[in-house]
């Protein structure tokens, strides 16, 4: 098993005890957006998936997992990449959940929800998730979760409000969707590069276990 996958499994195991909390948020979001299938997926991704992806950092501060990471046979780059991979895994789980709900809601309420609309919701969700993670993760690494926790929740809420208010707009073309998907990938990759670059600077934070 590759070290990055090991870190991802560790992250997922870290957040498992808080699964119920994440589920409550997910159910609430799904209940609120149930009448608008186009909004379900972006809302779920932004309000639930993005928050859940930050849990490993939150729990790490609480349980001093930085020391555990420093003791385990594990490079910093594997750790950082593993965090991103676990964020992707979180996105995948919520995307499946949200997609199912969107399709079911559209069917039950006899609302039109075409394949193209679904693709648009998915692409938009991915791009917004990537933007969210791209901003938050380097900050979490550099300053710690507790320093940027508010930022981590206000960005998704602001974004979902914008999406909800503009949900009546026409669905973007296939070219735009491709651009959104590619843009998400670029953001994700760029964020990894930034995180790797800022990681050594967290050495300056007092009281933190570090490997160098």
């Amino acid at each position: 098993m590759k070290p990055i996958v090991r870190v991802t499994l560790l992250d997922l195991r870290t957040i498992t005890p808080y699964g119920r909390q994440a589920l409550v948020i997910a159910v609430l979001v799904m209940a609120i957006t149930a009448d608008r299938p186009q909004v379900v997926l972006p809302a779920l991704i932004l309000l639930a998936a993005s928050v859940t992806a930050g849990y490993p950092f939150q729990i790490s501060e609480k349980a001093d997992l930085e020391t555990l990471y420093a003791v385990l046979p594990l490079t910093r780059s594997s750790l950082l990449l593993g965090h991103y991979l676990s964020a992707l895994a979180t996105f995948a789980v919520y995307a499946v959940l949200g997609s199912l709900e969107a399709v079911i809601c559209a069917h039950l309420r006899h609302v039109s929800f075409s394949g193209h609309e679904f693709a648009a919701a998915l692409a938009l969700s991915w791009a917004l998730f990537a933007l969210n993670i791209a901003v938050k993760f380097p900050l979490f690494i550099r300053f710690g979760y507790s320093q940027v926790g508010m930022l981590g929740t206000t960005i998704p809420i602001a974004l979902v409000a914008v999406i909800a208010s503009r949900a009546h707009l026409s669905v973007p073309s296939a070219a735009w969707l491709d651009l959104l998907a590619a843009g998400g990938l670029v953001l994700f990759g760029g964020s990894i590069a930034v995180t790797v670059a800022v990681d050594p600077r967290r050495l300056r934070r007092p009281g933190l276990a570090v490997r160098y």
């Binding site: 560790l10 195991r13 870290t14 609480k62 349980a63 930085e66 020391t67 555990l68 003791v71 276990a209």
Partner: peptide, 19 residues
């Protein structure tokens, strides 16, 4: 200690064993 407080001891093993 530096493991998650909500882990059971069996989960602690499952968390670190792969490394």
């Amino acid at each position: 200690d530096y493991v998650v407080g909500d882990w059971r001891l069996s989960e602690v093993e499952r968390a670190v064993r792969p490394f």
